[in-house]
């Protein structure tokens, strides 16, 4: 074998070795880049999730000293008002949002039947307020209406609340196109229901029970209520929301 071909073989061997080393370095570099990219991505995900949880938790927490209306009853952890005799044989739990059109339909269909049953001493109504239909178009009407109801009940008692409740459903603005009742209208309906305008005005305008309204809505969700109206007759869900359905359920509960 000649010297030149030996040299040629050695050179090739060296070149191959260098190539292999370069490939190894490149692979190492890619590996490092993948680890770096993965670590950055994991950090971004963790930071985004933690920040979101912290910020949103702060946004949903209501002040510990949020004002609470007087006259609430123990049913529903204090986020309720009751109408009717305490010793009535049947309790009807009503979960409603003042902006909810199906609630108005229920009130139109069965509201007077329910009130007759209260007058007869058969039924005690427990009102659970919910406010989840706020929008910028209705100027957060669900919250303003439930706050106003709490102000009316707190200052003027639950008989006035019941009339105010009926007036708000009778005059409910359209959910899709309406802009909610104004604070002035809420005050005037409160007056019509029997409250004094001076007593309710500042509470309605300042949404004095705004934090309580948020908690009441949250409580309804904790109660497992996922839609309005939800009606329980002695704890059993009322499926037929007509006057006859209600009468039958109450009759069944008393028998």
């Amino acid at each position: 074998m000649s010297t030149s071909s030996k040299k040629e073989t050695a050179r090739r061997r060296i070149a191959a070795k260098r190539e292999a080393e370069a490939a190894q370095r490149a692979a190492e570099q890619r590996r490092r880049r993948t680890i770096l990219g993965g670590s950055i991505a994991a950090a971004v995900v963790v930071i985004a999730v933690v920040v979101a949880i912290v910020v949103q938790t702060a946004r949903t927490s209501t002040a510990a000293d949020a004002a609470v209306p007087s006259g609430t009853v123990a049913d529903g952890n204090g986020y309720t008002f009751a109408v009717g005799p305490d010793d009535a044989p049947v309790t009807v739990d009503l979960y409603e949002d003042y902006q909810c059109p199906n609630c108005r339909d229920f009130e139109d269909a069965a509201g007077s039947t329910l009130e007759d049953l209260v007058t007869a001493g058969t039924v005690r109504i427990v009102y659970h307020g919910m406010a989840f239909l706020d929008s910028s178009r209705n100027d957060d009407y669900s919250t303003r209406a439930l706050n106003a109801a709490a102000v009316v009940a707190s200052t003027s008692g639950t008989d006035v609340l019941e009339r105010f409740h009926d007036l708000l459903y009778a005059n409910q603005p359209d959910e899709a196109t309406g802009s909610g009742l104004t604070d002035d209208q809420l005050i005037s309906y409160a007056e019509q229901a029997g409250a004094s305008a001076e007593a309710v005005e500042s509470g309605i305008r300042d949404q004095v029970y705004g934090g309580w309204v948020e908690r009441a809505t949250d409580q309804a969700s904790k109660d497992g209520v996922t839609g309005t109206p939800t009606v329980f007759v002695d704890g059993t869900t009322l499926t037929d929301l007509s006057a006859d359905g209600l009468s039958a359920a109450v009759a069944a509960a008393t028998s």
Partner: peptide
């Protein structure tokens, strides 16, 4: 608050996890 109610409505998670999931999942 609506996100919390939406997660709670599934009735799958204990109350302590409802908030973190409602806020963390969208992120």
């Amino acid at each position: 608050a609506a996100a919390v109610r939406a997660v709670r409505a599934y009735r799958l998670l204990p109350e302590g996890l409802v908030g973190p999931v409602a806020f963390g999942l969208p992120a």
